[in-house]
């Protein structure tokens, strides 16, 4: 056990672009590695991705293990699992962090089982028990009603997937120096059991509230169905989905698949903006676990303000378009 040293981050990239969750993990990983007094390594797989190594270093990695090969161009469970597991067996890190993305959640369990070690899913908080050199993996469970801290006392490496948009990345420092270590790649025919036939971008099946990171919801306070356009505009500006209260759905203003709450969908996005929603218990039950909640309502006594982080008492028909405008301006300037 003691021969395992170092903290690794799985560097997820897609079409030559590092996923933001990877940068967030490097930020957190840097902090944890410093506590442990070990190196922070990013393991990067892909094709024609040499250019990304320095970026990973700029965001905090001491070392990048890079496997660059045609067969790694798109994520593929078998190949990625084999290469990462081999590297872990060879180099013996004590901790591996993986983003809880669709890819990370496909990969990490497979790797953990192959290495026969523990894995904690969807962590929202990470820390170190310095006395025992253990990774403290904190995550919500039971529909967000319980928060549990989990450790892997004996299995090595200790593995965790981490929810996106929770950890904060470090500011980019292009002057940082690090080591880049190429990983040899051999192809195995048996790795290619699952073939990717095509990748389709941007097509989503209806509205995908559960997975949305940002949700803008409208309720009875919109007054009429046409006002959902205001909500849609803000959701679009934020890259989020449109939600609704039961009242708005029952009134026939929007379809049921948008409904958030007890009889609708339970969501926990990073940002939830409730517009003209009073906050009946049934609605709160479906969204109160969102990371940041903004309530916009004309009634200062509306119960939605009890669960909100930020409240604006005012006319949503004025406030929401102003907010949309400001976000669009900021996006243009960037």
């Amino acid at each position: 056990m003691n021969d395992h040293k170092g903290l690794w981050v799985f560097a997820e990239q897609k079409q030559g672009k590092i996923k933001s969750v990877t940068l967030e993990l490097l930020g957190k990983g840097r902090e944890l590695a410093d506590i442990l007094g070990v190196e922070l390594t990013a393991i990067l797989l892909g094709h024609n991705i040499q250019g990304l190594c320095q970026e990973l270093i700029s965001y905090g990695a001491d070392r990048v293990l890079v496997a660059d090969h045609k067969s790694l161009e798109n994520y593929q469970t078998d190949t990625y699992t084999r290469i990462i597991s081999q590297q872990v067996k060879e180099r013996k890190p004590e901790i591996i962090l993986v983003g809880a993305s669709h890819i990370g959640r496909d990969l990490a369990p497979r790797v953990a089982r192959r290495l026969d070690t523990g894995l904690t899913a969807d962590c929202t908080e990470l820390g170190i028990d310095e006395a025992e050199r253990l990774l403290l993996q904190t995550r919500p469970a039971f529909g967000g009603n319980i928060i549990a801290t989990i450790v892997t006392p004996e299995g090595r490496p200790q593995m965790a997937t981490v929810r996106p948009k929770i950890m904060v990345s470090l500011p980019k420092d292009s002057t940082r120096k690090g080591e880049i270590v190429p990983v040899p790649v051999t192809e195995f025919a048996e790795d290619l059991r699952v073939k990717i036939l095509s990748i389709v971008k941007g097509d989503k099946h209806g509205c995908n509230l559960e997975d949305a990171e940002i949700i803008v919801s409208g309720g009875r306070g919109l007054g009429k169905p046409e006002n959902f356009k205001i909500i849609e505009a803000l959701a679009k500006a934020l890259g989020g989905e449109v939600g609704a209260s039961r009242d708005a759905v029952d009134a026939g203003w929007i379809s049921h698949d948008h409904q958030v709450g007890q009889t609708g969908k339970a969501v926990r996005p990073s940002l939830y903006i409730a517009c003209g929603i009073s906050g009946a218990v049934q609605h709160l039950a479906g969204m109160k676990d969102s990371e940041t909640i903004v309530a916009i309502n004309s009634n200062p006594k509306a119960p939605i303000f009890d669960v909100a982080d930020f409240g604006i008492v005012g006319d949503l028909k004025v406030v929401v378009p102003a907010l949309t405008q400001m976000i669009l301006e900021q996006k243009e300037n960037n």
Binding site: D116, T117, G118, L119, T120, L136, P140, A141, G144, N145, I146, I147, A148, T149, I150, V151, T152, P153, E154, G155, K288, D289, A295, P300, F305, D306, V307, A308, D309, F310, G311, I312, V313
Partner: peptide, 20 residues
């Protein structure tokens, strides 16, 4: 391999709202 070290109910934090 994993052990639960600590688990607690998440308590609703009432009244934390910041009215802008």
């Amino acid at each position: 391999w994993t052990r639960i070290r600590k688990a607690a109910a998440v308590k609703p934090q009432k009244g934390k709202v910041q009215i802008l």
